[in-house]
Simulated scan of single mutants.
Amino acid sequence: MPTRIHEFSWPDRVVVGVTGLPGSRTFYLQVRAGKQLVSIVLEKQQSAQLAENIDDILDQLLSVDGNPFSIPTGTPPELVDNDPIEEDQEQFRAGAMSLGWDPSTSQIVIEAHPLAAEDPDAQLGEESLHPDEAEETEMLRVRMPVGTARAFAKRTREIVDAGRPMCLLCGYPVDADGHTCTVPES
């Protein structure tokens, strides 16, 4: 099964953005280099975890004696990107994701694979009717410098946190059209 890899080694832009209103937002990881633009759908929790893990990796690298990678402690102001995402069709919905560090280029590396589609024939215990028709899979690989990674994590946290407020009593999100709170009994 051939895999189509969308690879970005030094992207012009890499951001998490959303469409829709709080409560029904769709999160996108969008990457652009020149005219090449790829958008994949993420879950809110994937976005939040990605930002947290990027900051964790960068913070661990800060503790390396002499900080040979010039890791910034905060977000460089010139790298802040608050623009909305660009209109584009999604390539795929992210399933498995991995995050790493490439010391040879001093870059954070994100890899995202599509959410596995269920084969209805496989559920019935039958083999595919067309075994020679291998479906092409996709993968996104993004390499970003440390400053860009800090800015990416900061923006992502802000977008995740901009959702619906949490009810102080029950801890569930409060919808714009109201909230029925069921306080747990003590």
Rank of each mutant, 00 (worst) to 15 (best):
I5K: 06
H6G: 05
F8P: 00
S9Q: 15
S9F: 15
D12F: 07
R13L: 03
V16S: 10
V18E: 14
L21M: 15
G23V: 02
S24R: 15
V31F: 04
R32I: 00
A33Y: 14
A33H: 12
V38W: 03
V41Y: 10
L42G: 01
K44I: 07
S47H: 07
D55L: 06
D56R: 08
I57C: 06
I57W: 01
L58T: 00
S63I: 03
S63D: 13
D65S: 11
G74N: 06
T75P: 01
P77H: 01
V80I: 09
D81Q: 09
D81L: 08
N82R: 11
D83W: 14
E90N: 12
Q91C: 11
R93H: 10
M97G: 09
S98A: 11
W101H: 06
D102N: 13
S106C: 10
E111S: 11
H113Q: 15
A116H: 14
D121P: 14
G125I: 07
S128W: 13
D132I: 05
D132W: 15
A134K: 14
A134L: 12
A134W: 12
E135C: 08
E136C: 05
T137L: 09
M139L: 03
L140I: 01
R141E: 06
R143C: 03
M144N: 02
P145E: 15
V146T: 02
T148V: 06
R150A: 00
F152R: 04
F152Q: 00
F152D: 00
K154E: 14
K154V: 10
T156M: 02
E158A: 11
D161Y: 11
P165D: 03
M166E: 13
L169E: 08
Y172F: 10
Y172W: 14
P173M: 02
G178S: 03
T180V: 06
C181P: 02
C181E: 06
T182C: 06
T182G: 07
E185Y: 10
